[in-house]
Nucleic acid binder design. Sequence first.
RNA 1: GGAGAAGUGGCCGAGAGGCCGAAGGCGCUCCCCUGCUAAGGGAGUACAUGGUUUAUCCCGUGUCGAGGGUUCGAAUCCCUCCUUCUCCGCCA
Length: 432
Amino acid sequence: MLDIKLLRNDIDAVAKQLAKRNFTLDAALFQALEDKRKTLQTATQELQNERNTRSKSIGQAKAKGEDIQPLLAEVADLGDKLKAAEEDLSTLQAQIDDIVMGIPNLLDDSVPEGKSEDDNVEVSQWGTPPIFDFEVKDHVDLGSPNGLMDFESASKLTGSRFVVMRAGMARMHRALIQFMLDTHINEHGYTEVYVPYMVNEESLFGTGQLPKFAEDLYKIQSGDKEADKSEQSYYLIPTAEVPVTNLVRDEIVDANSLPIQYTAHTPCFRSEAGSYGRDTRGLIRQHQFEKVELLHFVKPENSEQALENLVTHAETILQKLELAYRKVILCAGDTGFSASKTYDLEVWLPAQDTYREISSCSNMKDFQARRMQARFRNPETKKPELLHTLNGSGLAVGRTLVAIIENYQCEDGSIRVPRVLQPYMGGMEILK
RNA sequence: GGAGAAGUGGCCGAGAGGCCGAAGGCGCUCCCCUGCUAAGGGAGUACAUGGUUUAUCCCGUGUCGAGGGUUCGAAUCCCUCCUUCUCCGCCA
């Protein structure tokens, strides 16, 4: 959520900024609604003030034992007028809130212009893509023959975009999670957190998935209960960003505890509505996948550096796994709704002969914090101020598995186990 | 799943229709006194938001778990939901 004052005072500049990300802000409509709001709110508050003062005088008169009937008569129609005014105001306010909640974050000045992912700018490369003297297979062909990776069974159990893994494959998948968590905890100073995989609506509003992206989420319907509107419903988390970031929702954290760095392993659930036909083969785009997430809560002046650190932490994993990758900065048109600036890490996939996203690291600045009222007390001004929140994948586990399988493949179809993972797999060196 | 109790500022806690944005305590900030393993005195100290502009000041509005309702007036009464605790049942 953007600062409402910024929208009131300088909406044209905001609209211009947002145009960079292909977002059209109807400044005239907002302005008109705002003007109405101002008069309506002032009028409503005047009525409330009148009610309050009159009620108070009734109380005082009663305490003195005076006759309050004439006073009651005076306020007879005040209630109805006030009620009407309050209803008009809340309707109008809801309209304004809808608009404001649907406005994406302002982009950092360093974000390059561009319309789509084709305009993202490469920042750096690490490692060299391996050269094979045989025809490379993709991870599906490598994993399927021995049932290590089994998409047919998964579609029987559930449907498309799920997987069953067996034996060494399942173990390597688990090893990756442990390896990532251990690295972030031991070398990068993160605190591990375990969080619910289902969250309420408020949490999803806090991080920005709602109200705009409801179709990407799975909503839980509990058992035999008919959808009862009065009861709160839960959603499966699309990323650990949601539960972990919401830890600071409605909190005023001690400035001394900053920066806070959390890491969490969770499954992620995405409906992938709107991506029909994309990446239908293999593990790349699943309804359920594991991710190790990195989150920072920092003072505003430190968030720029925190993003650089966070990306480095994610890069460390790829480097230890000796996987070639490149780092890109997302252009204006490709940067996500809540993000001010995003780096993607893209790992080399031999079978696709290209780099594919494996991590996305973003500085949300105060966008999520404002929605969540996540604050810290500034020791100098003694006033609460909004935190800056950041998050990034460190890394997406399924896609990392894909990268290992394809980059470490041998001519006979077996897969070498990366050195750093071997201790996590009982010393196993070859996966077949 | 059944029965009961409770949710008040950074924390603890009083308050039971009007004199309550809320006693008292702890903590914190500032000042004074004193002078040495410390103690005493005084003052201040919720958040959001509108007028209202970077900000200050002032005036208002809202907020006592959340949302509705009753009333001239609700922290206080009623309803729904959420959460916590106690007892019983069940359970990885």
